[in-house]
């Protein structure tokens, strides 16, 4: 991809504050993700990484500041319009619907852009889902549910993916598969924001890392700076 195209701004968050009821969780987040980039949000438990993704989706109590998605201001937008700007969200708790079977879960999110994967392509990428397509969504194993949660946003054609802890609790071989999936998506030019506990998984995939602490971004690290900033990471993450 050319340098010029890389500089298209897919997501820009400025001075984002987020609240759950009375509790003030995010304190002025600033971040920018260009088209085709894979960026991670790192931090300890409770540092506000999931809240950042949920704020972008308008799933928190209240938010202020600015969130530009594909050039559109979304802070005043109802939640259901944001997905249609090309955003796909994979929540931390996976969010598989138990009253829908696997295929219904897969087909649930509406297409938001052209160029998404077809059902056939998805079943080829995740053969387990094909075999279990008629069982209730939550009868799948944890790993299969995680694949389903990923697969269902790949179908929509979203070009900005917000992925929250997609490797959590998964066997190493599935984690490896997911890593390959992410690389393929990146090669297709998709933009990805990855919240990840598993630093070894995220490090080789990412272009940049944002380090979060107490609801603020405390450090931005490009992948080539990782070596020299390892000590800093250790202090913040305790890895």
């Amino acid at each position: 991809m050319s340098e010029q195209k890389r500089d298209v701004e897919q997501l820009r968050v400025s001075d984002l504050h987020a609240f759950y009821g009375e509790s003030h969780i995010l304190h002025g987040i600033d971040m920018k993700v260009n088209r085709g980039e894979l960026v991670t949000l790192l931090g300890r438990n409770g540092s506000g990484r999931s809240t950042t993704l949920k704020s972008i989706m308008n799933m928190v109590g209240k938010r202020t500041g600015s969130i530009m998605v594909n050039g559109n201001e979304t802070v005043g937008m109802p939640a259901h319009q944001i997905a249609h700007l090309g955003v796909g969200f994979c929540p931390e708790e996976r969010g598989i619907f138990s009253s829908l079977n696997v295929e219904e879960n897969l087909m649930l999110p509406p297409t938001v852009r052209s160029g998404g994967m077809s059902l056939d392509e998805i079943y080829e990428m995740f053969p387990n889902l094909y075999e279990r397509r008629m069982s209730p969504g939550t009868r799948l194993s944890g790993g299969e549910q995680q694949m389903l949660a990923m697969a269902r946003i790949l179908r929509t054609g979203a070009n900005l993916l917000l992925l929250d802890e997609i490797t959590e609790g998964l066997a190493p071989v599935i984690v490896q598969t997911l890593g390959e999936v992410l690389l393929k998506l990146k090669a297709k030019g998709l933009t990805i924001v990855l919240v990840e506990q598993n630093f070894r998984f995220a490090a080789p995939l990412a272009d940049r890392h944002y380090l979060m602490e107490h609801g603020s971004i405390v450090e931005e690290i490009a992948s080539h700076e990782l070596e020299e900033k390892m000590d800093l990471l250790n202090t913040y993450l305790g890895v």
Binding site: M59, P78, P91, S99
Partner: peptide, 12 residues
């Protein structure tokens, strides 16, 4: 089951 997530997927 989960109206908030359904809405985040783009359903009104």
């Amino acid at each position: 089951e989960n109206p908030q997530l359904l809405q985040a997927f783009g359903i009104n």
